[in-house]
């Protein structure tokens, strides 16, 4: 591993304290995508992104950086550096990748379009669309996670949310299944946008679905995406390992062990592409991991496919 998990955890904890985000990024990173879309800033249901899509372009850059260090003599140097490296320096080292930034912005705008098309006009908390803390939870930073969870809950409640519409599997999972264990009195009803929208015919052709682990195994969001894709006009194909036995994209360990993560992504990509060269993802982490190793295949977020926004 190029970095010790505890070193990464320290950087993340530090960044959380300074920026409220796991990596240094501009303060409007979570809601800049929504500029020009006027949604009510209070009310229910509340669209809550938890900033995971928006952080994807930063994650790709950090992974590039750690991959460079992995297995090289720079590795130990990187480790030592990270101990003294203030997040502000990392901020300069880690620039978001522009094409990914533009892509996730299109995804989020498509999700709003899909909700509106389904007759749902959500509220959006703008500067209170805070990071959910998923990475803190995944890394075992329980106290920091609990603190963040309480902040998010308080902010959403203050804006009048009763129902929350999440946009990715990690955020859906922590809010729906983990927050209740960490936040006293948590009473928000949480659903993924894929559970509330309806389909309109906008596409055609074949698409293979890549179930994200958390939707498939922990949140039972399995049939909805298939029905939506079919309703949109696609013929849905199943990879060998799908639904509850879906296979991970490798994403969760990309920062700590990029070499293994890449191997896993390649295994998954190859079994997806056996069925179709068009691959539908439902999670920003899956998207960046599979897109990174794809060559002839096209990896597209399901929101763009459902909104008819694929280029």
């Amino acid at each position: 591993m190029p970095f010790e998990p505890r070193e990464i955890a320290r950087l993340i904890a530090d960044s959380m304290k300074r920026y409220g985000l796991p990596f240094p990024a501009p303060s409007d990173v979570a809601y800049s995508w929504a500029k020009g879309i006027s949604l009510p800033s209070r009310g229910s249901p509340m669209l809550y992104t938890g900033a995971l899509y928006q952080l994807a372009p930063y994650i790709v850059s950090i992974v590039d950086y750690t991959s460079l260090l992995e297995g090289s003599s720079l590795s130990s140097l990187g480790l030592k550096l990270s101990r003294h490296l203030p997040p502000s320096v990392l901020r300069i080292a880690v620039r978001p990748r522009e094409e990914v930034r533009a892509y996730v912005e299109r995804v989020l705008r498509s999700i709003v379009k899909l909700l509106e098309r389904s007759g749902i006009r959500p509220a959006y908390a703008y500067e209170d669309d805070m990071y959910s803390g998923v990475l803190l939870y995944d890394l075992g930073l329980d106290e920091l996670f609990a603190e963040q969870a309480r902040k998010v809950f308080k902010a959403l409640k203050a804006r009048g949310a009763q129902e929350v519409i999440a946009v990715d599997p990690h955020t859906t999972h922590v809010l729906r299944s983990v927050y209740p264990k960490y936040v006293d009195g948590f009473d928000l009803s949480v659903r993924s946008y894929l559970e509330v929208i309806s389909a309109s015919a906008v596409g055609r052709g074949e698409v293979v679905v890549h179930d994200p682990c958390l939707y498939a195994r922990f949140e039972n969001v399995v049939e909805q995406p298939r029905k939506l894709l079919e309703g949109a006009g696609y013929k849905v194909l199943e990879p060998r390992r799908s639904r509850r036995m879906t296979y991970c994209c490798g994403g969760p360990i990309e920062g700590l062990a990029p070499k293994i993560a890449k191997k896993i992504a390649r295994v998954r990509l190859s079994e997806l592409s056996e069925k179709s060269s068009l691959i539908a993802t439902m999670c920003p982490i899956c998207y960046i991991n599979l897109a990174e190793v794809a060559s002839r295949e096209r990896v597209e977020d399901i929101a763009l496919l459902l909104a008819g926004e694929v280029k």
């Binding site: 195994r217 036995m245 991970c248 360990i253």
Partner: peptide, 29 residues
């Protein structure tokens, strides 16, 4: 920390051990 937390092991276990949750406990430790 090399565990993905993907939960495939939970699904595979014949006796329903929530392995990914136990491994996350190790991370928290």
């Amino acid at each position: 920390f090399l565990c993905l937390g993907c939960g495939r092991c939970d699904e595979a276990c014949p006796v329903g051990i929530p392995l990914s949750r136990l491994i996350r406990e190790l991370k928290a430790y």
